[in-house]
């Protein structure tokens, strides 16, 4: 598993990357009340805002970690956005992206580096 500075986790299986947010991010956000997901088939560029998460406090975004195509989204989050708080590393993945250049994953932190990052 890899981590971004925006507190996303990335789980790669071949060139398909599942994306969620870390426990740290979920705690900072507070209770999540709404999730807006991209459409399957959307072509995205690394850094695009592709998911909106609304918590009781504020709205925040998830950025595309790599270039590629959205091949699957977790529609259960629309009905149960609270999963982002209850199981951020498991059931609350947001989308899977087929990376057009998997080497873009190399720049992200491993778990130890992320732990140092959040202090």
């Amino acid at each position: 598993m890899k981590f971004t500075e925006e507190h996303e986790w990335l789980r790669a299986d071949g060139d398909v990357v599942a994306v969620g947010i870390t426990e740290h991010a979920s705690e900072q956000l507070g209770d999540v009340v709404f999730v807006e997901l991209p459409e399957v088939g959307t072509q995205v560029t690394k850094g695009d805002d592709i998911v909106v998460i609304e918590s009781v406090k504020a709205a925040s975004d998830i950025l595309a970690p790599v270039d590629g195509e959205i091949i699957e989204i977790n529609e259960t989050l629309a009905d149960d956005p609270g999963k982002v708080n209850s199981d951020p590393l498991g059931e609350a993945w947001f989308f899977k992206i087929k990376a057009s250049d998997p080497s873009q994953m190399d720049e992200y932190m491993d778990e130890d580096a992320y732990k140092d990052f959040i202090g």
Partner: peptide, 9 residues
């Protein structure tokens, strides 16, 4: 009352 689930802040 917004029709969807997204808050209008």
């Amino acid at each position: 009352r917004p029709e969807g689930r997204a808050p209008m802040r």
